[in-house]
Amino acid sequence: MRSIPKGASPVDSGPVTVLSGTSSDSHTWNLVFLQLLLEEAGHRVANIGPCVPDRLLVEECLARTPGLVVVSSVNGHGYDDGLRAVRELRAQPGLARVPAVIGGKLGVNGTLAPDRVRDLLDAGFDAVFADGDTEAFTSHLSRFGLRAAS
């Protein structure tokens, strides 16, 4: 995918953070926004783009050995697509422990019900962020100890 028009804080060293849409989701404004947000928090971002088949996500992660995987979905299929993707990821010995989070508008009925959030965590995500949880996400990112842009 094309990189976004130059952000204020591109990062060119350190472990890479893989940012990805889900297999059926074509939205990209969320990905552009998250790439900028991650770069501002000091992350070097590989933005895999929208409509990423599970197989491609696994291949990209195996090739890049990321320090963090961020999955974003807003089209309403995020629960199902996320479950499938993270199971594929966790099935790879090399990716069993890589930190992975998901967020966005994950269902078609508004906020995801708590038992569905639980399913995503049980399947292997380390955190699940709802639509408006950007602040919780930025504070989650602080645990990666990277130097944020001032």
């Binding site: 297999s23 059926s24 989701d25 074509s26 409509c51 089209n75 309403g76 299929h77 199902d80 269902g107 078609v108 009925n109």
Partner: peptide, 23 residues
């Protein structure tokens, strides 16, 4: 729905079979 859009008719049939919410 988005599965049909990306040509993943298998996933669409799976969702139909399991009664999953589609967009």
């Amino acid at each position: 729905d988005s599965y049909t859009r990306v040509g993943d008719h298998r996933a669409a049939r799976g969702a139909v079979a399991h009664g999953t919410d589609l967009n």
